[in-house]
Computed example of a mutant assay.
Amino acid sequence: MGPEKGQSNEESVASSIRSESLNKDRNVKEDPVLVCFDVDGTILDKNGNFIDREGLKNLIDNLLEHGHKVAITTLSTIYDELLLKQIGLTEDQIKGIPIMAYSDPKTTGGGNKKRHIQEAMQSTNVKDVKRIILVDDDGNQIIRAKFIGATGVQAGYEGFSWSKVQKAVDKLNQK
């Protein structure tokens, strides 16, 4: 299907995306929130121990139960589904959680997570970057996420609680 008369290709694509975001009653369907979790310094401390594993498991259970999406977005290459099993997630939950675990060796510090977020959006079929939350201990990653239109939740500091992530999800759902 090409652009309608007087419409550019870009306008046609935007119109198509808007149409896809309507439900059968022609009301706007809200994309679920996609929460992208960093690992080192966010899920695991500097010694490789979980930071409040039970709290994280409860948060992920709640997010998935309410139709939201979860992804792992890390610049480290050592994490896979074993991490999700260690959190205590079920096989069904794990199947729906994409893991973007790679870095760019040409970039100091491994790069930023823009590509990780884009791939997580594709994998989970979340189309609106404004429905994305990046949870990360690296303030630069939080700034970069905000720059592309996502929400950033700083983690990895003393006093951090997974409830801050739930509050960010609740805030997005109020808009």
Rank of each mutant, 00 (worst) to 15 (best):
E4A: 12
S12N: 12
S12Y: 11
S15W: 09
I17E: 12
S19K: 13
S21P: 03
N23V: 05
E30I: 05
V33G: 02
L34H: 01
V39H: 08
D40F: 10
G41T: 08
I43E: 01
D45F: 06
K46W: 11
I51Q: 09
G55Y: 05
N58V: 14
E65K: 12
H66P: 05
V70I: 13
A71Q: 07
L75A: 13
S76Y: 00
S76K: 01
S76V: 03
I78K: 11
L82A: 14
L83P: 01
Q86R: 15
I87F: 08
I87R: 08
L89N: 03
T90P: 01
Q93H: 09
Q93V: 05
K95S: 14
A101V: 04
A101T: 12
K106L: 13
K106H: 13
G109F: 11
G111H: 10
K113A: 06
I117E: 06
I117S: 06
E119N: 13
A120Q: 06
M121Q: 07
T124G: 09
R131E: 00
R131G: 01
L134T: 01
A145R: 05
T151A: 09
G156N: 01
E158F: 13
F160L: 08
W162M: 02
V165K: 07
K167T: 15
A168P: 01
V169W: 01
L172P: 02
K175R: 14
